[in-house]
Amino acid sequence: MKRMLALLPLLFALALTQSATEILDRVEKNLQDPWQAVVQGLVQGPSGQEGLRARVFALPKENLFRIEFQKPGSLEGNFTVITEKEVWNYLYLTNQLIISPKEKAQVQGLGFSPQGLGDLKGLSERVALRVVGEERLPEGTAWKLLGQAKEGQGFASLELYILKADPRPVRFVFRDEAGKVLADLKVVEFKRAALRAQDLKRYPKDAQVVRR
């Protein structure tokens, strides 16, 4: 009996781990069709805390995501495209498109990585998430998931809120090792939309393409 009692926390933890996977599977099924949304909130930048607003476009079946930065002003015009194998970063000021293999692009060591905002499945592979409860948010009841990031992600832990009624992420909180918030971002203006791969991959024709 004692042995069974000792096993209970382990079984409970296992159950929660499974349900985090289940929740992410539900999100994946729910977000199979193309969608777009706006991610906005506060991030810890090199010069302190600043507002971030980015438009996210997703073609999940093609593993293709595009994040267009609108705020802060220094990033306006910059965008990130995530493909099956690569990450493209377009930099407006230098008119460069920097193309990196995904494994190289993830090691940036500079605050939170915005790649997970569009690619939740990819993000969950880099963060061991578990369910810690439910919370009422303005959008409705949401599952709260918490997880520690693997090394080299630019953040130590992630709090993720998934809407129960329409399984999709509605809030991301990225923290560093000391628990300080690196980014607190909400997903708003979500809608399913007709998107084309060539539009998500578009970049200025005079841009200098740099392959790393």
């Binding site: 910059n78 970063n89 930099l91 460069q96 500079l110 740099v210």
Partner: peptide, 12 residues
């Protein structure tokens, strides 16, 4: 050599 700062910048 080069250093990529993701969407923040790039240095060669």
């Amino acid at each position: 050599g080069s250093l990529s700062l993701g969407p923040l910048g790039y240095l060669a």
